[in-house]
């Protein structure tokens, strides 16, 4: 299977790899995985308390090229967005941007779940109600 150029670019030059301080009250951490392919993805956001905007986003993914590219792209998109705007990111947006083939769509789903899990963690830390999960 051939990867698209955008997937290769994110795979070879992943953006925002790393981690943020998990214990920081303004940091939300999402850890998700897909046992069927052995992927595990950690995605973190740091929200500016003044503006409510996501200042920083980091990820670390162990998995295939598409999973790495999906989470790399997700962190790029997250920066500069409000939490609510971030919640509007859909896996189909990632599929379209990276031109993922049908067999790799689950990688984009994983990235969307990671975003939601990170935001959920952040909201819970802020004392808000947890999001209603898709599952």
């Amino acid at each position: 299977m051939a990867y698209s150029n955008k997937v290769l670019d994110h795979y070879n030059h992943p953006r925002n790899v790393g981690s943020l301080d998990k214990s920081d009250e303004h940091v939300g951490t999402g850890m998700v995985g897909a046992p069927e392919c052995g992927d595990v993805m950690k995605l973190q956001i740091k929200v500016n308390p003044e503006t409510g905007i996501i200042d920083d986003a980091k990820f670390k993914t162990f998995g295939c090229g598409s999973a790495i590219a999906s989470s790399s792209l997700a962190t790029e998109w997250l920066k500069g967005k409000t939490v609510d705007e971030a919640l509007a990111i859909k896996n189909t947006d990632i599929v379209n941007e990276l031109a993922l083939p049908p067999v790799k769509i689950h990688c984009s789903v994983l990235a969307e779940d990671a975003i939601k899990a990170a935001i959920n963690d952040y909201k819970v830390k802020q004392g808000a109600e947890p999001l209603v999960q898709a599952h």
């Binding site: 998700v32 995985g33 897909a34 046992p35 069927e36 689950h106 789903v109 994983l110 779940d113 599952h135």
Partner: peptide
Amino acid sequence: EAGDSRSNPP
């Protein structure tokens, strides 16, 4: 559905 990590996340 072993492959459905959404409905039963690990």
